[in-house]
Design a protein around this nucleic acid. Sequence first.
DNA 1: CCCGATTCCTGTAGGC
DNA 2: TGCCTACAGGAATCGG
Length: 281
Amino acid sequence: MPELPEVETTRRGIAPHLEGREISEVIVRQPRLRVPVPGDLVERLVGARIGELARRAKYLLVPLAGGDSAGGHLAGGTLLWHLGMSGSLRIARLGELPKKHDHIDLVLEGGAILRYHDPRRFGFVDWLAGSPEQDPRLARLGPEPLSDAFDGERLFALSRGRRVAVKPFLMDNAVVVGVGNIYASEALFMAGIDPRRAAGRISRERYDRLAAAAREVLAAAITQGGTTLRDFVSGTGEPGYFKQRLNVYGRHGEPCRQCGAELRLVTLGQRASVYCPHCQI
DNA sequence: CCCGATTCCTGTAGGC
DNA sequence: TGCCTACAGGAATCGG
């Protein structure tokens, strides 16, 4: 499911096919996504030229400018795209027939198609008129986990007095963005921290380890093209290969790769959480 | 403010 | 080409 590494893998995969190209046609087969597809999306996009793709948290940002044949009065703004938990964006060839759950196509000049597939429809695409950072969905987000603004000091400072378990704390987008269930589980294993531990009762030193672990696991996952559990494919249609590197996520009942103890499953913040009762304290 | 619960959706797994 | 239920989850939202 798309977390930060999967969105980043998608951005890198589709960017060379999109940037600088004009959108010649837009096909919306299913407008009922998590957020309804804007009624004027097609007229906003047709004729627009795509700028440099960016990512903020798990959002993909597609800036639009007026194209040569647009007339121009509607061109501009930014697409805000979220892949939800089963969404993928990939490049399809002109003439490749859509399959079930292929909800949106952006047909580009030159014949490539950006195709959005999302069986569970938890994702969405929205159009923003102004600065993306002023959108309420982006305005209150914490720092990027791979930026200098994310470190053990921040985790320590924000967690004082908090009784919530450290795992949902790490998954809180106001604390740090982009860390979903998979990578929170893996980072806590790497740092040797019990996911059930109250966030406010973890030392500064251990938060330094946790921040470093989160950074490391996310960077490694990006290198591997993300994690494919079921649906995820990159912008070029490839699965991600980080699944084979997972130490705890989805492995409850199996032996810990470090110590051999049986991995345990608990629920924290309404999310399945797997941990090693021996290595994580 | 803090925290837990609920909601959206559909494919898959597991029990019978 | 068996039916039924539980579960997966990002993030907005609500209630205590």
